[in-house]
């Protein structure tokens, strides 16, 4: 998990990581907004923005390897998507629409990557608290984050168990049926776990009202 903000301290402490979390979010949103507003005839501005995002990514310590891999998965689909309009009706307007789409989307995508890299989840929750997001939503996000890790482990065990029995092969309907059962089993176990967790919360005095350690709108 080292290449992203998943997990807690990943040990990266670049100048970008040192920015306040709220600023990271606003900065990224700002860049995406500006990229969406720049019209095609000002493409050098768009290029400048791209360069800026690239510098940001380098400063944040994103490795070239990671960037190329993410882009290699992202760009082909974007190319196909953009091309389908000029293919339907090839004229100048269509082509300029496509070019502008490609640039916008690439800048936005790379800005998003920067944010993923520099914003740990914990800081995101703190920022959302600070911005007065509904406490219940933040508590649920924290809960989801915690149990996502556990369910991934459980999913891996279920799939290993399945692979041990039938090697994951077979006609498509069989794979579909087994995969659905894996999801169904995951769902059942997780719902049962949620019941137990609810009990554990009650045992520590939970009454349904959400309280955070930072002391804002407690109760």
């Amino acid at each position: 998990m080292g290449t992203s903000g998943i997990g807690s301290d990943t040990g990266s402490h670049s100048i970008c990581h040192a920015l306040p979390a709220g600023m990271k979010l606003l900065l990224t949103l700002g860049i995406i907004l500006v990229a969406g507003l720049i019209p095609l005839e000002h493409w050098p501005a768009q290029g400048l923005l791209l360069a800026l995002v690239f510098v940001g990514l380098s400063l944040a310590g994103v490795t070239m390897r990671y960037l190329v891999r993410r882009l290699a998965l992202f760009l082909p689909l974007l190319l196909v998507f953009g091309l389908s309009v000029p293919m339907a009706r090839s004229n100048d307007a269509a082509w300029s629409w496509t070019l502008s789409l490609w640039l916008r989307c690439t800048v936005s995508f790379m800005a998003g990557l920067w944010l993923v890299h520099v914003l740990p989840f914990r800081d995101l929750l703190t920022t959302l608290r600070y911005w007065h997001f509904p406490p219940a939503l933040i508590a649920m996000l924290g809960f989801m984050y915690r149990y996502t890790f556990i369910l991934w482990d459980e999913l891996r065990r279920l799939r290993n168990a399945r692979a041990a029995r039938d090697f994951g092969g077979g006609p498509w309907w069989r794979v579909w049926s087994i995969n659905s059962q894996v999801i169904g089993l995951l769902l059942l176990r997780a719902m049962e776990r949620a019941e137990r967790t609810h009990r554990a919360m009650l045992a520590r005095g939970w009454d349904g009202s959400i309280r955070f350690l930072d002391g804002k709108d407690a109760g």
């Binding site: 809960f143 999913l155 579909w176 995969n179 894996v182 995951l186 997780a190 967790t197 609810h198």
Partner: peptide
């Protein structure tokens, strides 16, 4: 009521994890 947070949070985790299971397309 007071089950809202654990149940909803867990359901989000289930959907998230469930989306990791890939279904081959014919």
């Amino acid at each position: 009521e007071d089950r809202a947070v654990p149940l909803t949070g867990m359901m989000a985790a289930i959907v998230f994890a469930g989306q990791m299971v890939n279904f081959p397309l014919f």
